[in-house]
Nucleic acid binder design. Structure first.
Lengths: 127, 127, 127, 127
DNA sequence: GTGGTCTAGACCACG
DNA sequence: GTGGTCTAGACCACG
């Protein structure tokens, strides 16, 4: 189940993308699994099908799912997970302003690593 | 010096805010320092004064700078740095989707901590 | 309906903020109500959408309304009304110069309380 | 002694005006008293003479002080204190948004009157 | 000189 | 449809 948060700064279609990746990470979705149809997921999340469609298109572009004409959308092979330098660089760019914010709050590097530890535990614990 | 990146997903005024916080963290701006005037910074960054004004107003709201009537804007005291639970929670919420993305790339927790180490070193090294 | 007064010393966006709070106080706007869209209100008040947008953003920052992506702005829950010491202190600071002015006019404390009584009656009477 | 507060939302020249009226209300300045010269007060308050001059001009316009060419500025007769309906109306207009803000905070009318009581006591107590 | 407000209009992302 | 950002430029109060 994906939880949408209207207060979240992330757009809804991004929250859907992140939520599906989260399920893959947690093993709740494995390669070959059929995704809920756009309309199904849209009605479950109470959003317009347009929004889910946008998320699925982006997920396919990223190689997370594959769309099979007339059959539906399926989780793609793990091998497709991108690990390129580009992705690495993008994450670094997202992380940098967070680190500055953290230092601005005069919190230590170690505490940030502990926070990350906590987040990972929360992700794993709920499998 | 603040570098604006038009490719960056962050709006310009947010990049200015982050850039100024970065300078505070790096010690290039210390409490009491006078900020460049809105018009000065605007012409340096080649943006309209309105955009810089928006960034300065948000920075004042966050307690990073104080606006002195008719004199200009000044870096405020370190004591004003907020460290509340709310700020902590906000950072956690920004960090979580990054962690998921990271796990999705099948990178280890330790490598993420190393990346954070690298970012902190880059911030400190350039003082 | 919000009435803008060009003679008023308050900026337009502050008059809009105050006018909306007035409607909440009067019960003309209740939690969950959808606000007029920025463009609607702007054309009603004959100001630019930018000015209404500034008012709405400040109202959201104050917790009076919530902005829902792509849907519009809505009056938020009563529980969100801030009642902290900071707000109390701010009001006291605004009230003090008025009291001095009042005393300067050699009017009595009691008459000031009566004036306040009148203002409250006008606010309640018009529901 | 007038205390200027750079964080105050009121412009400095208004703070000077209010501060002098406060002294009249408190009886620290009585009709006939000579005011400090513009340059004296400016150096005491660490502001430019222009700012004090602006305050004195407005005070004279309001009939609080009179300027005697070559002699200086003097506190005028009490009789000159304006008590017209215009002034009353102006105060009411300043008070109304404060009352709305107060009601918005869900505080009672009685508590507002108590706050006013407190402010008056602080003004009288310090004579 | 300084910052604050406002206009008129554009373009964009999101739903 | 919705709000968010930005430009280019104006005018103003304040110091």
């Amino acid at each position: 189940m994906i939880r949408l948060n209207m207060q979240d700064t992330r757009p809804i279609y991004i929250q859907i993308i992140d939520g599906i990746k989260e399920q893959v990470v947690r093993g709740l979705l494995v390669p070959g699994d059929q995704m809920p149809s756009i309309r199904q997921l849209a009605s479950m999340l109470v959003v317009t099908p347009n929004t889910v469609s946008k998320a699925y298109q982006e997920l396919e572009r990223q190689g997370v799912i594959v769309s099979v004409r007339g059959k539906g959308n399926f989780v793609s092979e793990q091998a497709k997970r991108s690990k390129g330098k580009e992705e690495y660089q993008k994450i670094k760019e997202k992380l940098q302003p967070i680190c500055i914010e953290w230092q601005y709050m005069q919190e230590s590097k170690e505490e940030l690593k502990e926070l990350i530890e906590t987040i990972f535990e929360e992700l794993e614990g709920s499998v």
